[in-house]
Amino acid sequence: MKTNYHFNDMDGPQAPWLDELMQLVARFSDLNVAPDLSNMVLADLWAVYLSLRRRAETLRTE
């Protein structure tokens, strides 16, 4: 898993972070983020991704 994403990586043709975002949204479904995703611009999705990823990493270290 790539740990250091750069802003330019977020909109590449494969954008693997989008797949991981969807997995994180499913994992943290209690946060009820999914309904809002379709109204977000790419930069907002990136922020949600980073936030959920940080949460997942924090849970992993506890």
Rank of each mutant, 00 (worst) to 15 (best):
M22W: 00
M40K: 08
T3D: 14
L18Q: 09
M40V: 01
T58D: 13
S51Q: 12
S38L: 14
G12I: 12
Y5F: 11
P16Q: 10
L37C: 15
L59Y: 15
S51Y: 02
H6R: 08
L42W: 02
N39G: 09
L45S: 04
L42A: 02
A15H: 04
N8A: 14
S51M: 10
S38Y: 14
T61R: 05
L59R: 13
A34S: 12
Y5L: 14
W46D: 07
Q14C: 02
R54A: 13
F28W: 13
V25C: 08
R53V: 01
E20W: 01
Y5A: 07
Q23M: 08
P13A: 13
Q23Y: 06
A26E: 09
F7D: 12
Q14M: 00
P13C: 02
H6L: 14
N4V: 04
D30Y: 11
S29V: 10
R55T: 13
D9R: 10
N32S: 11
L21Y: 01
Y49R: 07
N32R: 15
E62V: 09
L24H: 00
A15K: 07
Y49C: 07
P35V: 09
S51D: 07
P13G: 07
S38I: 10
Y49F: 11
Q14N: 14
R53A: 06
L21P: 00
P35H: 11
Q23T: 15
W46E: 04
D11F: 00
Q23H: 09
V25Y: 05
N39R: 06
M22Y: 03
Q23E: 14
L31C: 06
V48Q: 15
A43N: 05
D30W: 06
L24Q: 04
G12F: 00
R55L: 14
F7E: 07
R55E: 13
L42V: 06
Q14G: 09
W46G: 02
A47C: 02
S51C: 02
E20Q: 05
A43I: 15
P13F: 02
L18R: 12
R60V: 07
E57N: 10
L52R: 06
Q14I: 01
E20M: 12
Q23G: 06
A15W: 01
T58Y: 03
R55A: 13
L50E: 06
A34K: 05
Y49I: 02
A15R: 03
V25I: 11
E62P: 08
L24M: 10
L37G: 12
F7L: 09
W46A: 00
Y49S: 13
V25G: 01
R54N: 13
L31V: 01
L50I: 04
P16W: 09
L21S: 01
A56S: 08
M22S: 05
L45N: 04
